[in-house]
Simulated scan of single mutants.
Amino acid sequence: MDNDYGFDLARQRGIKLGPVGHRIVEDNDLTRVWEVKLEPGEELGFHIHYHPYYVVSLGGGDNEIETIFGDTIATHEPVGHTVYIDQKRAIHKLTNRSDRTYLSRLIEFKAVRWTYEGDPSESKPEPGDATPEGFEAAFNEILTHTGDLPWEPKSLKGLYQKMLWRNEETGASIALIKFDKGVGIPNAHAHASNQFMYCLSGKYRYIPTGTTLVAGSFYCNPVGSVHGPTIADETTVFLEIYDGPHYPVQPPWYTDPKDAT
């Protein structure tokens, strides 16, 4: 059956579902970032996903997905490999089939939450018209129409941002970033947290490597990894996500300290 995701079978076999990762790196109103780390032969037990998600490999090789129904899918996830899952999948587990450690970040997008028929964890409101006491407190939504926000110039000429969300305690943030044509980051540099970039439009190049981002490109620069300098060959707009503070120290191309956070 198309709507059978394995909950009845899990109940019959006495399987208790676990989390989708090993450690939560960042959790906010919009996203939850998990670390998945598996030594050779180690497995992440049976689980199911409740949100669309991205997986970004930070190292590894061959893995195997096995559903609760016994179906297996071989995957190859070397460093830099990414995959976006936007559809429900049956209960499954993940096993590292390579001879090296597998490490990844799994980014859940919490704006969408999937529900499953037969899921015992689903709590349903009591029948009736009245809203259960305290029900409103469960909602803490953020809605931003980015077209209504002005582009705020940063202290590097030709660079602008629209800050969509920021955690002042951790430094994590989500923003739209725009580079005018011919503008880029002038120096090689590293970040104090993981940087995720999704190119919405334009053409943006990392000069030493020639790595070029165009519309639809997803780019991850892990914490501490050096990249740059860069140049926008066309006016370019990114959705940029940091799961912590942006820089270990204020970089020289910013004169305003707030631009480095």
Score class of each variant (00 low, 15 high):
Arg11Cys: 08
Pro19Cys: 02
Ile15Tyr: 01
Glu64Thr: 12
Tyr50Lys: 07
Pro252Arg: 07
Glu240Arg: 00
Gly118Pro: 14
Val36Met: 10
Thr170Arg: 02
Glu66Thr: 03
His189Trp: 00
His51Glu: 03
Arg32Cys: 04
Phe139Leu: 11
Thr212Arg: 05
Glu43Gly: 09
Ala10Phe: 03
Val249Lys: 09
Lys157Glu: 12
Trp253Asp: 00
Asn167Leu: 00
Asp129Ala: 04
Pro252Gly: 12
Tyr116Gln: 01
Lys181Phe: 08
Ile91Ala: 07
Pro40Gln: 10
Glu43Pro: 02
Pro132Leu: 14
Asp180Cys: 01
Arg11Thr: 14
Thr75Phe: 10
Leu9Asn: 04
Ala260Pro: 13
Phe46Thr: 02
Trp151Tyr: 13
Gly171Leu: 06
Pro229Tyr: 01
Asp256Val: 04
Met163Ala: 04
Gly171Thr: 04
Val237Asn: 01
Glu26Ala: 11
Pro208Tyr: 10
Gln195Asp: 04
Thr261Asp: 13
His145Met: 07
Ala74Arg: 12
Glu169Arg: 10
Val223Arg: 13
Gly228Asp: 05
Gly6Cys: 05
Met163Lys: 06
Glu152His: 12
Gly45Gln: 06
Pro40Leu: 09
Ile207His: 00
Ile231Arg: 05
Pro127Tyr: 12
Tyr219His: 14
Asp233Met: 06
Glu152Met: 15
Gly134Ala: 08
